[in-house]
């Protein structure tokens, strides 16, 4: 471990601050995420009765397609709603709505990720008491959303077979912090020369404990175990 930077000779004074010649040292020791984490904790309390998942991936991995099919297949038995974050447009919210679930679009403008406060404002437009599963579709980006806790129960990172098997090695944080990784677009894996063994090996190195689902949101192949996972996590949350 590196030692903290010591810029001058300092003496700790009786009242907790430290006197320095010319400047005073004030101890802070607070996380840059302190405000976000406090709002996320409030969100988490509001989410006490529904399962909340935060879905992250690169743009174009099929987050919306996965959620459309999830809404269609679970809609008969569970109440779902989706909060969608994008830089611009409400196209994705409209797609989710057409699939049969209430959706709220957050247009982030230039912000590359969702923050807990944006989610807190969006849920004001949903009736949380009637919900079983709330999905937060984050902005398509494998870097920035990793740091922001939104108050979710589960973070799901999506990887499609077209993106290259080394994506987990290139963007380790977002994979490492995932409770589950969904590999999507299995239907075109052969056509794009997807190397399954290598992709799984890379994922295991970065995120050895995450659950893994391999599926095609387009054809429905492999959806069963993903839906089973959601049902199981919902019932274990409700005890």
């Amino acid at each position: 471990m590196a030692d903290p930077i010591v810029t001058r000779d300092v003496r700790v004074s009786a009242h907790g601050t430290t006197e320095v010649t010319g400047a005073r040292i004030v101890q802070v020791q607070r996380s840059l995420m302190a405000h976000n984490d406090a709002v996320a904790a409030t969100n988490r309390e509001a989410f006490a009765h529904c399962l909340v998942i935060n879905v992250v991936s690169s743009p174009g991995s099929g987050k919306t397609a996965l959620l459309e099919r999830t809404v269609r297949e679970l809609g008969g038995e569970l109440q779902l709603a989706v909060i969608v974050g994008d830089l611009e447009t409400d196209n994705d919210a409209l797609r989710i709505h057409a699939a049969g679930a209430p959706s709220v679009q957050i247009v982030t403008g230039t912000v590359c990720h969702l923050e807990a406060e944006m989610v807190a404002r969006a849920v004001e437009r949903l009736d949380l008491t009637s919900l079983d599963v709330l999905v937060i579709e984050n902005v398509g980006n494998l870097v920035c959303p990793a740091a922001w806790d939104l108050g979710e129960d589960l973070r799901i990172t999506l990887l499609s077979v077209t993106e290259g098997e080394d994506k987990p090695l290139k963007y380790p944080r977002i994979f490492r912090e995932a409770h589950a990784v969904v590999i999507n677009k299995l239907d075109i894996a052969e056509a794009v020369g997807y190397d399954r063994a290598r992709a799984l090996d890379n994922l295991r190195q970065v995120t050895p404990a995450a659950q893994l689902f391999e599926l095609s949101a387009r054809t429905g192949e492999g959806m069963g175990s993903w839906l089973g996972f959601l049902r199981e996590r919902l019932s274990s949350k409700r005890g």
Binding site: G22, A23, Q29, S31, L169
Partner: peptide, 30 residues
């Protein structure tokens, strides 16, 4: 690249103990 593989066992680790810090430690003020 931040891939956590034990140098002795060569087993990937799921438990990070340090390295995710982002905090303000102290200030110099006048």
């Amino acid at each position: 690249f931040g891939i956590a593989v034990c140098p002795t066992c060569e087993v990937p680790s799921a438990e990070l103990r340090e390295g995710r810090e982002m905090h303000v430690s102290h200030l110099e003020v006048a």
